[in-house]
Design a protein around this nucleic acid. Structure first.
Lengths: 194, 194
DNA sequence: GTCTATAGACGGATAGAC
DNA sequence: GTCTATCCGTCTATAGAC
């Protein structure tokens, strides 16, 4: 927990060197993943000296963490939806998920790339999938294959979001939220109802 | 097209240095992606000198390509399934896909990690998804939102395979093919039938 | 607060001895 | 066919001048 949304006292000339760095980091981590990005390239895009990154954020991992901080936690919203029971859950799940993440496409992309680009099996994204989504789902769906089906629901959400935010496959990337909900919810609801 | 399955004339002592390198490369690329792996670490695991990799395969990219060569092309099988029409297609699609890729989990993992780990939007995996799977699907499914639904079918397959082969989320990773087919096909068929 | 300079490590690739 | 040695580039991170 290094930084909060702290207002810098009174910067020098341009609008926040620190913010420029964060914006460039978000963009590049989302596009090329942690290993595919160098601090130098981020500094170049931000128009600052590379050593300033260390000065403001510490090391590269800390910059990654800072660039992924969100004003609200999209995960908690999802868990709340599941608690409302299985009727029409697919629709609520998709709408809530898309509404929460659409404004933060780059962060989700970074989440996927750092999870799937490296070798970390206990990466943050998978912990979330297992501990929050799947655990909640198991309390409301039924059947003796419900663990498998809960995992498949998670895979539907992650797969959809990966093609929408990371791979940017048309027409999924630019489709309106309600169009995706309408097209996908009936399929997902089958996994919920059994 | 550098190498075919060529029998080396008469190697020195142990079973093929070349094969040892390939096995180590497959394992490490699958686990940590292209950028996360060094030629030195592959050489170490293979128990050979690092310079032999250059000697046999050229550069690092050529080694990646060689490590992903498959005896058969799983993609062509999939396209054939789609041509058989929409009735019960989800079941055939899933069974064929899983049968084709289960013996080559590491290759699929590498495919995903190199597609999602780097920034290449035209990476091989996405070309396949778009040009083969989605294109075939568009010829058999109907409705004015069929492009969106075809893309969602692709996302279901890719998402499922990613959690099964790359993220290795239980119980999906170790589930029998027929169990996955039984649990998932009804949901996917809804996207096909509309 | 910003920049220069550089330390220190690692990785890819090659030349050449044996 | 295998290994030693090395070149050259890039990267993270830090020390310190201004």
């Amino acid at each position: 927990m290094t930084s909060r949304t702290r207002g810098r006292p009174a910067a020098g000339t341009s609008g926040d060197t620190r913010s420029e760095i964060l914006a460039a980091a978000r963009s590049q981590f989302a596009a090329r993943g942690f290993n595919g990005v160098s601090l130098r390239s981020i500094a170049r895009e931000a128009g600052v000296d590379a050593s300033l990154i260390s000065h403001y954020f510490g090391d590269k991992s800390a910059l990654l963490v800072a660039s992924m901080e969100l004003p609200v936690n999209p995960i908690e919203k999802i868990a709340g939806v599941v608690a409302d029971g299985p009727d029409g859950m697919a629709e609520r799940l998709l709408r809530t998920f898309l509404s929460a993440w659409d404004p933060h496409r780059e962060v989700f992309s970074t989440l996927v790339r750092t999870t799937l680009g490296g070798g970390d099996t206990d990466a943050p994204m998978l912990q979330l999938a297992r501990n929050v989504l799947i655990t909640s789902l198991l309390e409301v769906i039924e059947g003796d294959d419900r663990e498998l089906r809960a995992t498949l629901i998670a895979s539907e959400i992650i797969g959809m979001a990966t093609l929408r935010y990371v791979a940017k496959l048309e027409p999924l990337t630019d489709a309106a939220i309600e169009d995706v909900v309408a097209a996908y919810a009936p399929s997902m609801q089958v996994l919920i109802d059994r």
